[in-house]
Design a protein around this nucleic acid. Sequence first.
DNA 1: CGTGGCATAGCGGAAAACCACTGGTTTTGG
DNA 2: CCAAAACCAGTGGTTTTCCGCTATGCCACG
Lengths: 209, 209
Amino acid sequence: MSIKLMITDDHPVVTNGLLKIFDGHPAIQVSAVFSNGKDLLNELKVTLPDILLLDMNLPDMTGMELASEIIKKYPSVKIIILSSSDIIIQVKKMLQLGCQGYLLKDSDDVTIVKAIEAVNAGEQFLSPVLQQQILNDLFKKKQAPAELTRREKEILQLITEEFTNQEIADKLFISPHTVDNHRVSLLSKLQAKNTAGLVRRALEQGLVK
Amino acid sequence: MSIKLMITDDHPVVTNGLLKIFDGHPAIQVSAVFSNGKDLLNELKVTLPDILLLDMNLPDMTGMELASEIIKKYPSVKIIILSSSDIIIQVKKMLQLGCQGYLLKDSDDVTIVKAIEAVNAGEQFLSPVLQQQILNDLFKKKQAPAELTRREKEILQLITEEFTNQEIADKLFISPHTVDNHRVSLLSKLQAKNTAGLVRRALEQGLVK
DNA sequence: CGTGGCATAGCGGAAAACCACTGGTTTTGG
DNA sequence: CCAAAACCAGTGGTTTTCCGCTATGCCACG
Protein backbone atom coordinates (compact mmCIF):
# COMPACT_ATOMS: atom_id res chain seq x y z
CA MET A 1 0.00 0.00 0.00
CA SER A 2 1.32 3.40 -0.92
CA ILE A 3 1.54 6.37 1.36
CA LYS A 4 -1.12 8.98 0.69
CA LEU A 5 0.36 12.44 0.92
CA MET A 6 -1.01 15.97 0.87
CA ILE A 7 1.13 19.06 0.43
CA THR A 8 0.31 22.58 1.51
CA ASP A 9 2.68 25.36 0.57
CA ASP A 10 2.11 28.66 -1.15
CA HIS A 11 5.40 28.58 -3.07
CA PRO A 12 5.05 26.84 -6.42
CA VAL A 13 8.78 26.33 -6.53
CA VAL A 14 8.64 24.23 -3.41
CA THR A 15 5.60 22.20 -4.33
CA ASN A 16 6.95 21.54 -7.81
CA GLY A 17 10.22 20.42 -6.39
CA LEU A 18 8.49 18.10 -4.00
CA LEU A 19 6.29 16.64 -6.71
CA LYS A 20 9.34 15.90 -8.78
CA ILE A 21 10.96 14.07 -5.89
CA PHE A 22 7.93 11.89 -5.24
CA ASP A 23 7.58 11.13 -8.94
CA GLY A 24 10.39 8.67 -8.58
CA HIS A 25 8.81 7.02 -5.55
CA PRO A 26 5.77 4.93 -6.35
CA ALA A 27 5.33 4.17 -2.66
CA ILE A 28 4.51 7.82 -2.07
CA GLN A 29 1.40 9.16 -3.71
CA VAL A 30 0.61 12.86 -3.65
CA SER A 31 -3.15 13.09 -3.57
CA ALA A 32 -3.50 16.86 -3.42
CA VAL A 33 -1.60 20.13 -3.28
CA PHE A 34 -2.89 23.33 -1.70
CA SER A 35 -1.53 26.84 -1.50
CA ASN A 36 -3.44 27.97 1.58
CA GLY A 37 -4.96 26.72 4.81
CA LYS A 38 -8.60 27.18 3.91
CA ASP A 39 -8.47 24.97 0.84
CA LEU A 40 -6.72 22.29 2.83
CA LEU A 41 -9.30 22.35 5.63
CA ASN A 42 -12.10 22.04 3.10
CA GLU A 43 -10.53 19.03 1.47
CA LEU A 44 -9.90 17.37 4.82
CA LYS A 45 -13.65 17.32 5.36
CA VAL A 46 -13.82 14.93 2.42
CA THR A 47 -10.62 12.90 2.41
CA LEU A 48 -7.82 12.36 4.86
CA PRO A 49 -4.20 11.69 3.86
CA ASP A 50 -1.78 9.54 5.76
CA ILE A 51 0.71 12.33 5.96
CA LEU A 52 0.51 16.06 5.48
CA LEU A 53 3.49 18.18 4.45
CA LEU A 54 2.72 21.58 5.91
CA ASP A 55 4.42 24.89 5.29
CA MET A 56 4.78 27.18 8.29
CA ASN A 57 4.14 30.42 6.46
CA LEU A 58 0.83 30.36 4.67
CA PRO A 59 -0.98 33.42 3.40
CA ASP A 60 -4.20 32.95 5.33
CA MET A 61 -3.15 31.51 8.69
CA THR A 62 -0.10 30.54 10.68
CA GLY A 63 1.21 27.01 10.59
CA MET A 64 0.67 26.81 14.34
CA GLU A 65 -3.04 27.53 14.11
CA LEU A 66 -3.54 25.22 11.18
CA ALA A 67 -1.58 22.32 12.61
CA SER A 68 -3.27 22.74 15.95
CA GLU A 69 -6.71 22.55 14.39
CA ILE A 70 -5.91 19.59 12.19
CA ILE A 71 -4.41 17.64 15.06
CA LYS A 72 -7.49 18.24 17.11
CA LYS A 73 -10.02 17.42 14.40
CA TYR A 74 -8.19 14.68 12.56
CA PRO A 75 -5.74 13.06 14.95
CA SER A 76 -5.02 10.25 12.50
CA VAL A 77 -3.31 12.60 10.07
CA LYS A 78 0.41 12.80 10.63
CA ILE A 79 1.95 16.19 10.08
CA ILE A 80 5.45 16.99 8.92
CA ILE A 81 6.29 20.66 9.15
CA LEU A 82 8.13 22.11 6.21
CA SER A 83 9.90 25.29 7.11
CA SER A 84 12.88 27.39 6.34
CA SER A 85 13.01 28.61 9.91
CA ASP A 86 15.40 26.82 12.21
CA ILE A 87 14.42 28.85 15.24
CA ILE A 88 14.57 26.30 18.00
CA ILE A 89 11.68 27.70 19.96
CA GLN A 90 9.43 27.37 16.96
CA VAL A 91 10.60 23.84 16.30
CA LYS A 92 9.93 22.85 19.88
CA LYS A 93 6.49 24.35 19.82
CA MET A 94 5.42 22.47 16.72
CA LEU A 95 6.69 19.18 18.06
CA GLN A 96 5.00 19.68 21.38
CA LEU A 97 1.83 20.47 19.53
CA GLY A 98 1.94 16.94 18.23
CA CYS A 99 3.54 17.17 14.81
CA GLN A 100 5.50 14.09 13.90
CA GLY A 101 8.26 15.71 11.93
CA TYR A 102 10.04 18.93 11.16
CA LEU A 103 11.94 19.31 7.92
CA LEU A 104 14.03 22.21 6.79
CA LYS A 105 13.38 23.29 3.23
CA ASP A 106 16.96 22.87 2.25
CA SER A 107 16.77 19.15 3.02
CA ASP A 108 17.83 16.90 0.17
CA ASP A 109 15.62 14.37 -1.59
CA VAL A 110 16.83 11.41 0.37
CA THR A 111 16.19 13.08 3.71
CA ILE A 112 12.70 14.11 2.75
CA VAL A 113 11.75 10.64 1.61
CA LYS A 114 13.33 9.18 4.71
CA ALA A 115 11.29 11.51 6.89
CA ILE A 116 8.05 10.51 5.23
CA GLU A 117 8.81 6.83 5.55
CA ALA A 118 9.79 7.20 9.18
CA VAL A 119 6.68 9.13 10.09
CA ASN A 120 4.51 6.73 8.17
CA ALA A 121 6.01 3.93 10.21
CA GLY A 122 4.91 5.70 13.38
CA GLU A 123 8.26 7.23 14.22
CA GLN A 124 9.25 10.86 14.45
CA PHE A 125 11.67 12.71 12.28
CA LEU A 126 13.73 15.80 12.84
CA SER A 127 16.16 17.36 10.39
CA PRO A 128 19.65 16.31 11.50
CA VAL A 129 20.73 19.94 11.69
CA LEU A 130 17.95 20.62 14.15
CA GLN A 131 18.80 17.60 16.26
CA GLN A 132 22.29 18.92 16.66
CA GLN A 133 21.07 22.40 17.36
CA ILE A 134 18.73 21.30 20.10
CA LEU A 135 21.51 19.47 21.87
CA ASN A 136 23.85 22.41 21.56
CA ASP A 137 21.12 24.61 22.90
CA LEU A 138 21.23 22.76 26.17
CA PHE A 139 24.86 23.51 26.74
CA LYS A 140 24.87 27.08 25.57
CA LYS A 141 22.49 28.68 27.96
CA LYS A 142 25.01 29.18 30.77
CA GLN A 143 22.67 31.41 32.61
CA ALA A 144 23.92 34.10 34.91
CA PRO A 145 24.12 32.48 38.33
CA ALA A 146 21.74 34.93 40.05
CA GLU A 147 23.13 34.69 43.56
CA LEU A 148 20.26 33.78 45.81
CA THR A 149 20.53 32.81 49.44
CA ARG A 150 19.21 29.48 50.64
CA ARG A 151 16.14 31.06 52.12
CA GLU A 152 15.46 33.07 49.02
CA LYS A 153 15.64 30.02 46.80
CA GLU A 154 13.36 28.18 49.17
CA ILE A 155 10.82 30.97 49.13
CA LEU A 156 11.07 31.43 45.39
CA GLN A 157 10.33 27.75 45.01
CA LEU A 158 7.22 28.05 47.14
CA ILE A 159 6.06 31.15 45.28
CA THR A 160 6.19 29.28 42.00
CA GLU A 161 4.15 26.56 43.64
CA GLU A 162 1.37 29.09 44.14
CA PHE A 163 1.64 29.53 47.87
CA THR A 164 0.82 32.92 49.36
CA ASN A 165 3.12 34.75 51.72
CA GLN A 166 0.97 33.64 54.63
CA GLU A 167 1.14 30.00 53.60
CA ILE A 168 4.86 30.19 53.09
CA ALA A 169 5.28 31.79 56.51
CA ASP A 170 3.32 28.96 58.11
CA LYS A 171 5.35 26.37 56.28
CA LEU A 172 8.71 27.83 57.30
CA PHE A 173 7.65 28.94 60.78
CA ILE A 174 8.50 32.56 60.13
CA SER A 175 6.50 35.74 60.01
CA PRO A 176 4.64 36.74 56.83
CA HIS A 177 6.57 40.00 57.07
CA THR A 178 9.80 38.13 56.70
CA VAL A 179 8.51 36.32 53.69
CA ASP A 180 7.59 39.67 52.27
CA ASN A 181 11.11 40.92 52.88
CA HIS A 182 12.60 37.99 51.03
CA ARG A 183 10.17 38.63 48.27
CA VAL A 184 11.43 42.16 47.93
CA SER A 185 15.01 40.91 47.76
CA LEU A 186 14.02 38.43 45.09
CA LEU A 187 12.28 41.08 43.04
CA SER A 188 15.40 43.18 43.21
CA LYS A 189 17.91 40.40 42.58
CA LEU A 190 16.00 38.93 39.69
CA GLN A 191 15.08 42.34 38.35
CA ALA A 192 11.45 41.39 38.33
CA LYS A 193 8.53 43.74 38.68
CA ASN A 194 6.04 41.42 40.30
CA THR A 195 5.15 37.82 41.05
CA ALA A 196 4.74 37.06 37.38
CA GLY A 197 8.30 38.16 36.76
CA LEU A 198 9.60 36.13 39.67
CA VAL A 199 8.00 32.95 38.41
CA ARG A 200 9.09 33.60 34.86
CA ARG A 201 12.71 34.08 35.80
CA ALA A 202 12.67 31.23 38.25
CA LEU A 203 11.53 28.85 35.55
CA GLU A 204 13.69 30.27 32.80
CA GLN A 205 16.79 30.15 34.90
CA GLY A 206 16.02 26.75 36.32
CA LEU A 207 16.13 28.05 39.86
CA VAL A 208 13.27 25.85 40.96
CA LYS A 209 12.07 22.29 41.07
CA MET B 1 50.72 16.70 27.13
CA SER B 2 48.50 14.43 29.15
CA ILE B 3 45.10 15.29 30.50
CA LYS B 4 45.07 15.99 34.22
CA LEU B 5 42.01 14.44 35.81
CA MET B 6 40.42 14.55 39.24
CA ILE B 7 37.71 12.18 40.39
CA THR B 8 35.16 12.76 43.11
CA ASP B 9 32.85 9.91 44.05
CA ASP B 10 32.06 8.33 47.39
CA HIS B 11 31.74 4.81 45.99
CA PRO B 12 35.08 2.99 45.99
CA VAL B 13 33.72 0.56 43.42
CA VAL B 14 33.22 3.38 40.95
CA THR B 15 36.51 5.12 41.56
CA ASN B 16 38.43 1.86 41.40
CA GLY B 17 36.74 0.97 38.17
CA LEU B 18 37.59 4.35 36.72
CA LEU B 19 41.21 4.13 37.83
CA LYS B 20 41.50 0.80 36.12
CA ILE B 21 40.17 2.22 32.89
CA PHE B 22 42.59 5.13 32.89
CA ASP B 23 45.49 2.85 33.73
CA GLY B 24 45.51 1.79 30.13
CA HIS B 25 45.48 5.37 28.87
CA PRO B 26 48.73 7.21 29.39
CA ALA B 27 47.20 10.35 27.90
CA ILE B 28 44.90 10.55 30.90
CA GLN B 29 46.49 11.12 34.26
CA VAL B 30 44.42 10.88 37.43
CA SER B 31 45.97 13.37 39.83
CA ALA B 32 43.62 12.88 42.75
CA VAL B 33 40.54 11.05 43.99
CA PHE B 34 38.12 12.36 46.60
CA SER B 35 35.12 10.87 48.32
CA ASN B 36 33.40 14.11 49.30
CA GLY B 37 32.97 17.71 48.26
CA LYS B 38 34.91 19.35 51.03
CA ASP B 39 38.16 17.50 50.32
CA LEU B 40 37.83 18.36 46.68
CA LEU B 41 37.31 22.07 47.35
CA ASN B 42 40.34 22.13 49.62
CA GLU B 43 42.53 20.57 46.98
CA LEU B 44 41.28 22.94 44.31
CA LYS B 45 42.74 25.81 46.32
CA VAL B 46 46.12 24.27 45.62
CA THR B 47 45.92 22.61 42.22
CA LEU B 48 43.49 22.67 39.36
CA PRO B 49 42.85 19.72 37.05
CA ASP B 50 41.93 19.97 33.40
CA ILE B 51 38.86 17.89 33.91
CA LEU B 52 36.86 16.88 36.92
CA LEU B 53 34.73 13.74 37.05
CA LEU B 54 32.02 14.58 39.53
CA ASP B 55 29.47 12.31 41.15
CA MET B 56 26.02 13.77 41.66
CA ASN B 57 25.36 12.16 45.02
CA LEU B 58 28.01 13.05 47.52
CA PRO B 59 27.67 12.65 51.28
CA ASP B 60 28.28 16.26 52.22
CA MET B 61 26.70 18.31 49.45
CA THR B 62 24.69 17.97 46.28
CA GLY B 63 26.40 17.80 42.93
CA MET B 64 24.49 20.92 41.92
CA GLU B 65 25.90 23.02 44.71
CA LEU B 66 29.39 21.73 44.27
CA ALA B 67 29.48 22.10 40.50
CA SER B 68 27.97 25.53 40.75
CA GLU B 69 30.63 26.69 43.16
CA ILE B 70 33.51 25.22 41.20
CA ILE B 71 32.32 26.72 37.95
CA LYS B 72 32.13 30.10 39.59
CA LYS B 73 35.48 29.97 41.35
CA TYR B 74 37.49 28.00 38.83
CA PRO B 75 35.93 28.48 35.42
CA SER B 76 38.88 26.84 33.70
CA VAL B 77 38.07 23.45 35.19
CA LYS B 78 35.87 21.38 32.92
CA ILE B 79 33.30 19.25 34.68
CA ILE B 80 31.86 15.94 33.57
CA ILE B 81 28.97 14.79 35.70
CA LEU B 82 28.95 11.15 36.61
CA SER B 83 25.55 9.98 37.60
CA SER B 84 23.25 7.01 37.62
CA SER B 85 20.24 9.27 37.29
CA ASP B 86 18.90 9.73 33.80
CA ILE B 87 16.21 12.16 34.89
CA ILE B 88 16.12 14.60 32.04
CA ILE B 89 15.38 17.63 34.15
CA GLN B 90 18.44 16.99 36.23
CA VAL B 91 20.58 16.49 33.17
CA LYS B 92 19.37 19.74 31.66
CA LYS B 93 20.05 21.61 34.86
CA MET B 94 23.62 20.45 35.12
CA LEU B 95 24.35 21.30 31.52
CA GLN B 96 22.81 24.71 31.82
CA LEU B 97 24.88 25.28 34.90
CA GLY B 98 27.89 25.00 32.65
CA CYS B 99 29.06 21.44 32.95
CA GLN B 100 30.71 20.15 29.80
CA GLY B 101 29.56 16.57 29.99
CA TYR B 102 27.12 14.16 31.53
CA LEU B 103 27.96 10.48 31.73
CA LEU B 104 25.79 7.67 32.99
CA LYS B 105 27.58 5.31 35.31
CA ASP B 106 26.77 2.33 33.18
CA SER B 107 28.77 3.79 30.30
CA ASP B 108 31.45 1.51 28.93
CA ASP B 109 35.18 2.22 28.97
CA VAL B 110 35.32 3.47 25.42
CA THR B 111 32.52 5.96 25.96
CA ILE B 112 34.08 7.33 29.11
CA VAL B 113 37.44 7.87 27.48
CA LYS B 114 35.74 9.40 24.47
CA ALA B 115 33.88 11.81 26.71
CA ILE B 116 37.05 12.94 28.42
CA GLU B 117 38.85 13.46 25.15
CA ALA B 118 35.95 15.37 23.68
CA VAL B 119 35.61 17.66 26.67
CA ASN B 120 39.34 18.20 26.82
CA ALA B 121 39.20 19.30 23.20
CA GLY B 122 36.66 21.92 24.14
CA GLU B 123 33.59 20.03 23.00
CA GLN B 124 30.66 18.77 25.00
CA PHE B 125 29.66 15.22 25.63
CA LEU B 126 26.38 13.63 26.50
CA SER B 127 25.72 9.92 27.00
CA PRO B 128 24.10 8.67 23.79
CA VAL B 129 21.14 7.35 25.75
CA LEU B 130 20.52 10.81 27.10
CA GLN B 131 20.82 12.44 23.69
CA GLN B 132 18.10 10.16 22.43
CA GLN B 133 15.99 10.75 25.48
CA ILE B 134 16.14 14.49 25.17
CA LEU B 135 14.99 14.34 21.59
CA ASN B 136 12.18 11.97 22.42
CA ASP B 137 11.20 14.26 25.23
CA LEU B 138 10.40 16.97 22.74
CA PHE B 139 7.89 14.85 20.90
CA LYS B 140 6.31 13.21 23.87
CA LYS B 141 4.97 16.16 25.72
CA LYS B 142 1.81 16.48 23.64
CA GLN B 143 0.40 18.84 26.14
CA ALA B 144 -3.31 19.13 26.54
CA PRO B 145 -4.15 22.02 24.25
CA ALA B 146 -5.72 24.09 27.05
CA GLU B 147 -8.38 25.72 24.98
CA LEU B 148 -7.85 29.42 25.35
CA THR B 149 -9.56 32.08 23.31
CA ARG B 150 -7.51 34.54 21.31
CA ARG B 151 -8.04 37.26 23.86
CA GLU B 152 -7.13 35.02 26.73
CA LYS B 153 -3.87 33.98 25.13
CA GLU B 154 -3.07 37.59 24.43
CA ILE B 155 -3.70 38.58 28.02
CA LEU B 156 -1.83 35.61 29.40
CA GLN B 157 1.14 36.66 27.31
CA LEU B 158 1.06 40.16 28.75
CA ILE B 159 0.69 38.87 32.29
CA THR B 160 3.85 36.82 31.92
CA GLU B 161 5.53 39.96 30.67
CA GLU B 162 4.86 41.55 34.05
CA PHE B 163 2.17 43.98 33.02
CA THR B 164 -0.57 44.82 35.51
CA ASN B 165 -4.24 44.64 34.64
CA GLN B 166 -4.33 48.39 34.24
CA GLU B 167 -1.39 48.37 31.84
CA ILE B 168 -2.88 45.54 29.83
CA ALA B 169 -6.17 47.39 29.63
CA ASP B 170 -4.42 50.47 28.27
CA LYS B 171 -2.52 48.41 25.76
CA LEU B 172 -5.59 46.64 24.43
CA PHE B 173 -7.96 49.58 24.73
CA ILE B 174 -10.34 47.73 27.01
CA SER B 175 -11.46 48.21 30.59
CA PRO B 176 -9.34 46.88 33.46
CA HIS B 177 -12.46 45.04 34.57
CA THR B 178 -12.48 43.11 31.35
CA VAL B 179 -8.87 42.17 31.80
CA ASP B 180 -9.75 40.97 35.25
CA ASN B 181 -12.55 38.85 33.85
CA HIS B 182 -10.24 37.20 31.39
CA ARG B 183 -7.85 36.63 34.21
CA VAL B 184 -10.50 34.77 36.13
CA SER B 185 -11.22 32.61 33.08
CA LEU B 186 -7.53 31.88 32.75
CA LEU B 187 -7.22 30.92 36.40
CA SER B 188 -10.08 28.53 35.97
CA LYS B 189 -9.04 27.06 32.64
CA LEU B 190 -5.45 26.53 33.66
CA GLN B 191 -6.44 25.42 37.13
CA ALA B 192 -4.15 27.97 38.65
CA LYS B 193 -4.56 29.59 42.02
CA ASN B 194 -2.92 32.93 41.34
CA THR B 195 -0.64 34.87 39.03
CA ALA B 196 2.28 32.64 39.89
CA GLY B 197 0.33 29.63 38.74
CA LEU B 198 -0.72 31.35 35.54
CA VAL B 199 2.84 32.20 34.61
CA ARG B 200 4.09 28.77 35.54
CA ARG B 201 1.56 26.99 33.40
CA ALA B 202 1.92 29.44 30.57
CA LEU B 203 5.63 28.75 30.39
CA GLU B 204 5.39 25.02 30.97
CA GLN B 205 2.77 24.57 28.32
CA GLY B 206 4.47 26.87 25.88
CA LEU B 207 1.44 29.08 25.62
CA VAL B 208 3.49 32.23 25.40
CA LYS B 209 6.32 33.92 23.64
C1' DC C 1 -33.35 31.92 13.93
C1' DG C 2 -32.24 30.84 18.36
C1' DT C 3 -28.50 29.16 21.31
C1' DG C 4 -24.13 29.22 23.04
C1' DG C 5 -19.54 31.00 23.30
C1' DC C 6 -16.85 35.10 23.29
C1' DA C 7 -15.67 39.71 24.41
C1' DT C 8 -16.92 43.60 26.54
C1' DA C 9 -18.08 46.35 30.94
C1' DG C 10 -19.28 47.27 35.51
C1' DC C 11 -19.55 46.93 40.95
C1' DG C 12 -17.88 45.94 45.77
C1' DG C 13 -15.25 43.86 49.02
C1' DA C 14 -11.64 40.80 50.75
C1' DA C 15 -7.14 39.18 50.21
C1' DA C 16 -2.67 39.49 48.65
C1' DA C 17 1.22 41.75 46.96
C1' DC C 18 4.17 45.75 46.76
C1' DC C 19 7.24 49.24 48.93
C1' DA C 20 10.10 51.73 52.20
C1' DC C 21 11.46 52.03 56.33
C1' DT C 22 13.79 50.41 61.22
C1' DG C 23 16.15 47.30 64.01
C1' DG C 24 17.54 42.94 66.23
C1' DT C 25 19.78 38.09 65.95
C1' DT C 26 22.35 34.47 63.72
C1' DT C 27 25.57 32.59 60.48
C1' DT C 28 29.55 32.68 57.90
C1' DG C 29 34.11 33.54 56.20
C1' DG C 30 38.58 35.64 56.28
C1' DC D 1 37.15 37.21 66.50
C1' DC D 2 35.18 40.69 63.81
C1' DA D 3 32.52 42.26 60.06
C1' DA D 4 29.52 41.28 56.53
C1' DA D 5 25.80 38.87 55.06
C1' DA D 6 21.78 36.57 55.88
C1' DC D 7 17.78 36.08 58.42
C1' DC D 8 14.12 37.57 61.14
C1' DA D 9 10.35 40.86 62.61
C1' DG D 10 7.66 44.73 62.59
C1' DT D 11 4.91 49.34 61.06
C1' DG D 12 2.13 51.52 57.81
C1' DG D 13 0.40 52.53 53.73
C1' DT D 14 -0.62 51.84 48.56
C1' DT D 15 -1.58 49.03 44.69
C1' DT D 16 -2.99 44.93 42.63
C1' DT D 17 -5.15 40.75 42.47
C1' DC D 18 -8.89 37.73 43.46
C1' DC D 19 -13.77 36.54 43.37
C1' DG D 20 -18.62 36.59 42.61
C1' DC D 21 -22.14 38.95 40.72
C1' DT D 22 -24.84 41.13 36.59
C1' DA D 23 -25.39 42.47 31.88
C1' DT D 24 -24.94 43.67 26.90
C1' DG D 25 -23.65 43.19 21.89
C1' DC D 26 -21.75 40.08 18.52
C1' DC D 27 -21.21 36.21 15.66
C1' DA D 28 -20.95 31.40 14.13
C1' DC D 29 -23.17 27.06 13.78
C1' DG D 30 -26.73 23.93 13.33
